[in-house]
Design a binder for these strands. Structure first.
Lengths: 250, 250
DNA sequence: TGAGAACAACTCACTCTGAGAATAACCCCA
DNA sequence: TGGGGTTATTCTCAGAGTGAGTTGTTCTCA
């Protein structure tokens, strides 16, 4: 049988039905705190629960494209803003029973976004909101989304160490202090300002100077700060390591 | 996502069929060289091509379990040997058209195995073999498996840096030189024996002494070496960093 | 105008790393 | 059986990197 004949005779329906979805863990920093994008489910199962934005992958759609589409739909953002968002595959979740309706395998994505406007402007999803991560423990999410969020957070923290993705939480131009605030927020503890400054400038390709400075000093005083933009490095060498957390996973 | 999910809940078959498979990138070290487990495809498409072992996820089977099952089937190993194999999810691949038959989303896994016997003992797959990675460039694999292998290799190299998984390539007991050989093989360049030795013993939880030594010296001379077993660390602090590779991904 | 805040640069002690070398145990071969 | 070559393990040393604190300046706010 030739390959053509084989394909013509092939019956895809002979296989058990499995649905494939994408879910996106979208992180941003608002008012100095890490926030997560959630939508409220309108229907069963888990009606009225908050969940990660996501949905079915369309028949001729690539996985990455599906994740980007879901993110755009849920945030109500056009390509312009979305261009600055970093989107990467996180992991896949397919334990039988994770969706009570049928077998669903979900490909989770992780997104780093600059401070975006309030979500849900003109989307088909009902409510959407940025939830401060500090408020997450008191909220039960639909499906296994709590686990997915936890995995995404850990990935995000690790990624700040060896990639310049922290800059994706900021605008086009930023100060070293802005960048430090990102690290402090995501890692959850303060860093030594002087050492951070030295380190950031010493890592090749992390940031490059714009030559300009802020218009004014900080709101509580201090000199104008120099402005930088993201550099061209994809990986940081040497990495910006998190301060040892004592027995980090023995 | 409303009408679509509604329909899905009542008639899964109403959905465009998507098949979910697992593929496993299995690495081992044989005769001082990194090897990859491959099987030869007996059927269309890509008949006679070599491919990663893998197959369809069964209806009530977890993804991890499916990967473990495929690995066991293909290597012909029982639970005893498989217990020492490290298996983790690598990434998912679902570009439309990657399988000419239908939409197939594949969850790829990465496995680190100690030196295993020749594969394919009594399996349903036709041929199976350990391919030295050095021979890979001259061989075309089925589907997008070359890409998956490349991703798996990069992940493996990175994992050696911050996890004790190098020990998974070795037996229960090993010498520091054995461990160094694993790093040199996977990373592809020699390491300074003295510095490696100092570093391995200084990282908490990487290895622990058994108190014993090898029975004899090396085949070409040298003293007996002390034996160690894997420690209890899951993450290495500080990490065993690869020597800077000059512009690693600028 | 003075106090407080914060950017930027610098100092200093300590740790970690790469490179080389020393010591000693052990194999193989003459 | 003795010597040469090989390898495990330990040391030394200089240079790079890091944590913590200090200094000088610029700026905002009261």
């Amino acid at each position: 049988m030739s390959e053509e004949q084989y394909l013509a005779a092939y019956d895809p329906r002979a296989y058990p039905a499995v649905a494939v979805t994408v879910d996106v863990v979208t992180l941003t920093i608002r008012e100095g705190a890490l926030h997560l994008l959630l939508v409220r489910r309108a229907e069963q199962p888990y009606a009225d629960f908050w969940a990660l934005p996501g949905g079915f992958v369309r028949p001729a759609e690539d996985l990455d494209a599906a994740a980007g589409r879901e993110l755009a739909e849920e945030t109500g953002l056009g390509g312009e803003d979305l261009h600055r968002v970093h989107l990467e595959q996180l992991a896949s979740y397919g334990t039988p029973g994770r969706d009570p309706r049928m077998r669903v395998v979900s490909i989770a994505y992780l997104a780093f976004a600059p401070d975006l406007p309030e979500p849900s402007a003109g989307t088909d999803a009902g409510e959407a909101e940025w939830l401060p991560l500090a408020a997450l423990p008191s909220r039960r999410l639909a499906f296994d989304h709590e686990r997915i969020v936890a995995d995404g957070l850990e990935r995000a923290r690790a990624k700040l160490e060896y990639t310049p993705l922290a800059t994706r939480f900021l605008g086009e131009e930023f100060t070293i202090a802005d960048l430090r605030a990102v690290y402090e927020t995501v890692w959850g503890h303060p860093l030594h300002a002087g050492n951070f400054h030295r380190k950031v400038l010493s890592v090749p390709g992390l940031v490059e100077s714009t030559g300009a400075t802020t218009e004014h000093g900080g709101p509580r005083g201090g000199p104008r700060a120099r402005l930088y933009r993201a550099g061209d490095a994809r990986l940081l060498h040497p990495a910006l390591l998190r301060p040892a957390t004592e027995e980090t996973a023995r």
